[in-house]
Simulated scan of single mutants.
Amino acid sequence: MSLCDAEKTFILHGVKENFRVDGRDREGYRPIELETNIVQHAFGSARLRLANTDVLVAVKLEIDVPFPERPFEGKLEFFVDCSANATPDFEGRGGETLAAELANILTSAYRSPQTFNLKKLCILKGRKCWKICVDILILECGGNLFDAVSLAVKAALHNSQIPLIKSINIDGDNIELNVSDSVFDCEKLDVANAPVMVTVCKIGDQCIVDPSLAEEQCSVGSVVVAISQEYFSTVTSIGKGSLHPRTMCNSLELGQKVGIRLNKAFMETLHNIQPDEDVGFLK
Results as ranks from 00 to 15, higher is better:
residue 126 G to N: 03
residue 278 D to W: 00
residue 175 I to T: 13
residue 96 E to V: 04
residue 258 V to I: 12
residue 170 I to F: 01
residue 171 D to Y: 03
residue 132 I to F: 01
residue 239 G to P: 00
residue 35 E to S: 14
residue 211 P to F: 02
residue 262 L to T: 11
residue 20 R to G: 07
residue 25 D to A: 04
residue 179 V to E: 10
residue 69 E to N: 11
residue 221 G to N: 05
residue 275 P to C: 14
residue 84 A to F: 00
residue 89 D to P: 00
residue 210 D to L: 02
residue 143 G to I: 09
residue 239 G to H: 00
residue 143 G to Q: 08
residue 175 I to Q: 06
residue 197 M to Q: 07
residue 185 D to W: 01
residue 216 E to R: 02
residue 224 V to W: 00
residue 103 A to Q: 08
residue 9 T to K: 08
residue 260 I to V: 13
residue 105 I to P: 04
residue 33 E to C: 13
residue 68 P to I: 12
residue 269 T to P: 02
residue 163 P to A: 09
residue 198 V to W: 08
residue 214 A to I: 03
residue 255 G to T: 05
residue 27 E to A: 04
residue 65 V to D: 09
residue 126 G to W: 03
residue 132 I to G: 10
residue 197 M to V: 09
residue 115 T to Q: 01
residue 2 S to I: 08
residue 30 R to A: 11
residue 88 P to Q: 06
residue 126 G to R: 02
residue 6 A to R: 13
residue 85 N to M: 12
residue 89 D to Y: 08
residue 146 F to I: 15
residue 22 D to P: 02
residue 259 G to M: 10
residue 209 V to G: 10
residue 103 A to R: 05
residue 10 F to Y: 14
residue 224 V to G: 04
residue 88 P to L: 09
residue 250 N to F: 00
residue 243 L to P: 06
residue 186 C to K: 07
residue 9 T to L: 10
residue 256 Q to S: 15
residue 171 D to C: 04
residue 145 L to Q: 05
residue 201 C to P: 01
residue 231 Y to N: 15
residue 205 D to T: 07
residue 204 G to W: 00
residue 224 V to F: 01
residue 57 V to E: 06
residue 41 H to D: 14
residue 144 N to R: 07
residue 141 C to F: 05
residue 142 G to Y: 01
residue 280 G to R: 03
residue 133 C to V: 15
residue 181 D to E: 14
residue 91 E to S: 13
residue 29 Y to K: 02
